[in-house]
Write a protein that binds this DNA or RNA. Structure first.
Lengths: 119, 119
DNA sequence: ACAATATTCAACCTTTTGGTTGAATATAAA
DNA sequence: TTTATATTCAACCAAAAGGTTGAATATTGT
C-alpha cells in the first residue's frame, strides 16, 4: 500500500472527484436504489458500476443493505457534512480578505486626503 | 489523455483529496506564500511540492504571481464555493430523510401502543 | 563574471484508478 | 431442478497520481 492510513477526507473528496459517482450521490439523494438502477444512466459494465459503488461505500458516503438478490443503497450524509465543514475554511479566508479590503480602503482614503506615495 | 474534458468539479475535488494539498489551502487561507514557504511543513522534494501546487493551480483554487525569483500564491475562493454548492445537495437529502423519520416516528408510535422487541 | 537562491522541467518509477471481460455466487421463478 | 436475474470477483490493461533525482532556468547578491 502507498499509505498506511488513508484519511476519511481523502476518501470522501476522492470519491466526489468523479462525475459518475457524483451523479450516483445525487440519484441516491432522491431515493434508495439498487445496483442495476444506479447503473441505468451510465454507459459502462455492471462490474465498473459495482466498483464505483464500492468507492462511495468505503468513503462511507453510502450504506448497503442486501435484500434477496438485490443490493440497495442509501445515502449517508455524515461524511458529506464533514467535507462541507472542511471547505468552510474558505469563510475564514473571506473574513481575512475582507480585513485586507478594509485596510486597502482606509489606505486609499488617506491617499485621497494627502497624496501619499508608497515604495 | 483519458478524457477530452475534465470537469472543474472533478479537478477541485481531486485537488482536495490529498492531505498535503488541503494543508496548503489552509496555509494560504492565512496568508500568501511562496513555494519554499509552502514546502516548509512537508517532508518531500521541492519538485513534488511544485507538482502539488500545480494541481491546486489547475483546479483554480490558487493563483500565482511571480515576483523576482519567487512565485507567490494566493487562495482563490470561487472554486471552493462551487464545491460547497455542489455538496449542498445533502441539505435536500436531509429534508427527504426528515420526512422519512417523521413517517418512522408515526409508525413507531403505533408500535409503541402495542409492544416492542428488537435486538 | 560568479555563486547562491528560488523554482521548474524531464525522465523515470511504483501504486492507484477506472475500465474491460469471463467466470462465480446467490436468490428467485418456472 | 433448471433457468433467469442481480451482483460480485479475479485477472488483466492503460492512464494518471505522487513521488524521486539531476539538470535547466531565472533572478539576486558579491
Amino acid at each position: 500500500m502507498a499509505k498506511t492510513k488513508q484519511e476519511p477526507l481523502d476518501q470522501v473528496f476522492m470519491a466526489l472527484a468523479d462525475g459518475t459517482r457524483r451523479k450516483m450521490v445525487h440519484m441516491l439523494a432522491e431515493s434508495e436504489l439498487s445496483v442495476s438502477e444506479l447503473s441505468e444512466p451510465f454507459d459502462m459494465s455492471l462490474a465498473a458500476v459495482s466498483k464505483h459503488i464500492k468507492v462511495l461505500e468505503n468513503a462511507r458516503l453510502i450504506k448497503r443493505r442486501i435484500e434477496g438478490r438485490s443490493h440497495i443503497f442509501q445515502l449517508v450524509p455524515e461524511q458529506l457534512t464533514g467535507a462541507l465543514d472542511w471547505i468552510s475554511i474558505y469563510r475564514y479566508f473571506w473574513s481575512k480578505r475582507m480585513d485586507n479590503l478594509e485596510q486597502l480602503f482606509n489606505e486609499s482614503e488617506q491617499v485621497n486626503e494627502g497624496k501619499k506615495s508608497e515604495d
